[in-house]
Nucleic acid binder design. Structure first.
Length: 610
DNA sequence: ATTTATACTTAGGACGCACGTT
DNA sequence: AACGTGCGTCCTAAGTATAAAT
């Protein structure tokens, strides 16, 4: 595999030395025992992996030791007072059938338990867990009454909420212990955080959107399903007593520690490291370097695909138009999906004729393409865009003699497209355009929106607006928060409250209302005037802050900023912006994000350019 | 050329908790 | 102390991409 050599790849000799000095194996002994106090008091110097050289042989690590996954808690049968009824008659279920029944009972309040597909899939899978006796009795889901179960779980969760502080603390301590024991691994002399060290518990599958497999039973994972990956010379994780792992593997060409095959789609699930880890960070850094490489040649590429719109070969024209969409609209590549295996969603290459409408003229604009389709996670993409005449004509051509459900780009798929892109630039794939366009947009928007003399909240509003421009480009949506309207109203109430107060203060008579002390000194003593002035200033600043907050929130109603911040925006752009304007980085990145982007925070200066 | 397997990134929503407000 | 709410964390589904198998 090709490695993109990163520029400015300084090698810090001292860092190298430090690394060798660090002792391996302090993880499972000593440290945990003498408590976290020590670790907290003198946090071991943060490892700057970005100052070290990277492996060039395709190996991902040299040493890997971990404790294996945390298995899902075993099923606890219901107390006998909680009954299940079939066709009005009480019925005691065996533990297997009962467990699956509880999954359904826990979802009773959800709308999807009313959906045909959900019920059908659930019932089919549930029956597989029944004894032959149960199976012969229980033949109709409609006759099943899970209400007592459902109530029981509701009560349980109420009880959990109502627990004493002490009991809550106990749980917290136990979680912390689990984290300390299983949440870290040793990779190449460093203790690194694991992202998801728990095996996914069994339950009913609920895909996103109109998923054909909704309601199916996601089965319990046993040690016998699990593959462990670690160093040969490490202390191997032990399977729970009386069980065996499926396999113990020592593959340092991959980054995962644990894997298993999930039964719904038959896909493999992995346990991997946290985004703050070296192995994820390097990859992330490299991703942005590839996007920066695209920046260097994007003009050439754009000229190229514009030329290709005229090609006499249909496949080349399709490739060129698709690439234009991917570039201009930041569409995803659009791999083909097996029909009936998941929700019907598309990306660029898998667009169908039914997903676009062509308007030679619309709303005073020429050659408008209207997109309307469900993308990843069944999020709707709706957009009307004027395109160049040639693109428009090509689209008409591609749609000729086709049915709505036919592929728009019938001579193209992501594999063909990526092969082409690979020839144009080393490391280039379709998704790089999303990264590139997102990052360059942030940089441009920040330049445009930041005004030097604005105060801190206003600058942050500008940042959020730049961030928002990217989120809109990438179509990162969210469901409006349930409490949105109300919290917006609250904010407005506060605002008018401040406006009133300021009004009163500004008016001399307002003194009577405002503050007894000042009122007493009526008419104005110099001190009172000064105090009043200060108070007005303070109030006005708070008002400003509130107004900014209100604006920001309103504009953000249906837009999710997190995804682009975490996955598309070169963090060095944000770091540089913060440094340039003296904004504390904490205003932009929370703790987790600062950990993930530690490399960028350490590296980028105020003049960094993407 | 097409399908399958694998590994990894990207994604939105649920949930719970800290924190400010009443 | 009770409340509520906004944020961060967790969860895991759903994508992209590539290599290997057919």
């Amino acid at each position: 595999p090709k490695k993109i050599k990163i520029e400015n790849d300084r090698v810090d000799k001292k860092a190298k030395k430090r690394k060798q000095d660090e002792v391996r194996g302090n993880l499972w002994k000593g440290e945990v025992a003498d408590g976290k106090k020590k670790a907290k008091k003198e946090p071991e110097e943060k490892w700057k992996w970005w100052e070290e050289e990277r492996a060039t042989d395709g190996s991902k690590w040299r040493f890997l030791e971990h404790k294996g996954p945390v298995m899902a808690a075993p099923y606890e049968p219901l107390p006998s007072k909680v009954r299940f009824f079939y066709d009005g008659k009480q019925m005691k279920l065996g533990p297997e059938a009962e467990e699956v029944a509880t999954f359904f009972a826990k979802m009773l309040d959800h709308e999807y338990t009313t959906k045909d597909a959900f019920r059908k899939n659930f019932f089919k899978d549930w029956r597989k867990e029944m004894t032959s006796e149960e199976k012969s009795k229980i033949t109709d889901l409609k006759k099943c009454n899970f209400n007592e179960m459902g109530e029981y779980f509701k009560a349980q969760s109420e009880a959990r909420k109502a627990m004493t502080k002490d009991d809550k603390l106990k749980i917290k301590v136990e979680n912390e212990r689990l984290l300390q024991e299983y949440g870290f691994c040793i990779m190449d002399n460093h203790k690194e955080r694991i992202a998801n060290f728990r095996i996914e518990p069994p339950g009913l599958f609920r895909g996103r959107g109109d998923h054909p497999k909704m309601g199916m039973l996601k089965r319990r994972i046993r040690p016998e399903d699990i593959i462990i990956n670690c160093s040969k010379d490490s202390k191997h994780p032990k399977p729970p007593p009386g069980t065996k792992w499926k396999e113990l593997r020592h593959d340092n060409k991959v980054t995962w520690l644990v894997s298993w095959t999930e039964n719904i789609q038959g896909s493999i699930k992995y346990i991997m490291l946290n985004p703050s880890s070296r192995i994820k960070g390097e990859k992330d850094w490299q991703k942005y370097e590839t996007a920066r490489n695209l920046k260097k040649c994007v003009d050439r590429l754009r000229n190229q695909y514009r030329e290709d719109w005229k090609s006499k070969e249909m496949r080349i024209r399709q490739r060129a138009v698709a690439l234009y969409f991917i570039d201009k609209l930041a569409l995803r590549a659009g791999n083909e999906k097996e029909e009936g295996e998941s929700a019907d969603t598309v990306g660029c290459c898998s667009l169908r004729v039914e997903h676009i409408n062509l308007y030679p003229e619309k709303d005073g604009q020429e050659f408008v393409v209207e997109f309307d389709f469900l993308g990843k996670d069944s999020i709707r993409y709706y957009n009307k865009v004027p395109v160049e005449k040639r693109v428009f004509k090509n689209l008409q051509l591609f749609m000729e003699n086709k049915q709505p459900e036919d592929d728009l780009f019938d001579r193209l798929n992501t594999s063909i497209l990526n092969k082409h892109l690979q020839e144009l630039m080393d490391g280039l794939t379709a998704k790089v355009f999303r990264t590139y366009n997102a990052s360059i947009t942030l940089q441009q928007q920040l330049k445009e929106l930041t005004s030097p003399d604005e105060n801190l909240p206003a600058k942050i509003l500008s940042y959020n607006r730049a961030n928002r421009a990217v989120a809109i480009l990438c179509n990162h949506q969210r469901a409006p928060p349930k409490t949105f309207e109300k919290s917006m109203q609250n904010l407005q109430t506060k605002v008018s409250h401040y406006v009133d107060m300021i009004g009163l203060l500004r008016h001399p008579l307002g003194l009577v209302r405002w503050d007894v002390e000042v009122a007493d000194s009526f008419p104005y003593s110099p001190r009172a005037v000064e105090t009043k002035k200060k108070a007005v200033e303070r109030l006005e600043e708070q008002l400003m802050k509130l107004e900014v907050q209100a604006t920001d929130r309103e504009e953000n109603k249906q837009i999710a900023l997190g995804t682009s911040k975490l996955n598309y925006l070169d963090p060095r752009i944000s770091v540089a912006w913060c440094k340039k304007w003296g904004i504390p980085i904490e205003k932009i990145y929370n703790k987790t994000q600062r950990e993930k982007f530690a490399w960028a925070i350490d590296m980028a200066e105020d003049d960094y350019e993407f």
